[in-house]
């Protein structure tokens, strides 16, 4: 892990497994602990705003944030008046617990409309000051983006898995990220929507991997989801929040410098 003491985590998994719900809560708990957190979402229909507790905003990063890139380089690069910090200040939304949230836009038509915004987003994420920000990323469901390197900013990739056959099937594929050219330093399994210790054990044994943390099915969180409330607002002290708190601790423990900072 980097010695900066800042964590870089991405959440992947099958659609509906609970990635966004866990990622948003994870980001807010880090923010609540006084850390500078940038939550990022590479889903053109992002779910992270709901779990962070901010309204959905369709406005993309504007086209004038980029200019044509150099020959042989990326097609678009950040405009001269912008660097990653400036872009975050201008377009990163302020969320509860001090988290900043950066998305490239919210899809209404063809994804090509977001191309410039995607370039601005990617450059910002890759050139971010790693001594300043914890990065918490949420990817779209499935394997496509992770396998194409969209989580390459992350040192820890959490594969979120429900105790269902379909979710386990996707997770098996995602665990091969550890052997890919984009391999993060750690690929961890996070059991989601578990209804007891048996479920987490089942997930671990089916995947042949250790479960870093188990996050329970939660009726209060589900009820909050139906009325558009973030998990931490719907059930601040509940089992779901506690379990994500355990996950935060376990991820931080993977970073010796972060552990030292806390002690």
């Amino acid at each position: 892990m980097s010695g900066s003491g800042r964590v870089r985590v991405a959440f992947v998994g099958k659609g509906g497994a609970g990635k966004s719900t866990i990622a948003g809560t994870f980001a807010r708990l880090l923010g609540r602990a006084g850390r500078s957190v940038l939550a990022i979402d590479s889903d053109p229909l992002p779910g992270l705003p709901y779990s962070l507790g901010v309204a959905v905003d369709d406005r993309p990063i504007p086209d004038d944030a980029v200019t044509e890139g150099p020959p042989g380089g990326p097609r678009w690069v950040l405009a001269p008046h912008l660097d990653p910090e400036a872009l975050i200040r201008r377009h990163g939304r302020v969320c509860p617990d001090g988290v900043r949230y950066l998305q490239f836009g919210n899809l209404r038509g063809h994804v090509a409309a977001l191309q410039k915004a995607q370039h601005a987003w990617s450059q910002t994420v890759s050139e971010l000051d790693r001594h300043r920000w914890d990065v918490v990323g949420d990817l779209p469901g499935g394997t496509r983006q992770p396998m194409f390197g969209w989580a390459k900013y992350a040192e820890v990739v959490c594969v979120v898995v429900e105790p269902t056959a379909k979710s386990l099937h996707t997770a098996r594929r995602l665990l091969t990220l550890s052997k890919s050219r984009w391999a993060p330093q750690t690929v961890a399994v996070v059991a989601s929507k578990v209804r007891g210790p048996d479920d987490a054990e089942l997930i671990g044994s089916r995947l042949g991997a250790e479960v870093l943390a188990a996050v329970p099915h939660s009726d209060p969180v589900l009820a909050g989801d139906r009325r558009g409330a973030a998990p931490l607002d719907a059930d601040p002290e509940g089992d779901f929040a506690k379990a994500v708190g355990v996950l935060v601790e376990r991820v931080l423990s993977l970073y010796p410098a972060a552990a030292k900072e806390r002690s």
Partner: peptide, 30 residues
């Protein structure tokens, strides 16, 4: 696939019926 990406890339007028599945949550309804 989840989301609308495939739908935006599908050639026009290729299907007879589009079934859209939504859970009763603001995110899914959106």
């Amino acid at each position: 696939e989840a989301g609308i990406g495939t739908l935006t890339r599908l050639e026009e007028a290729r299907v007879d019926v589009t079934v859209i599945v939504a859970e009763p949550t603001p995110r899914s309804i959106d």
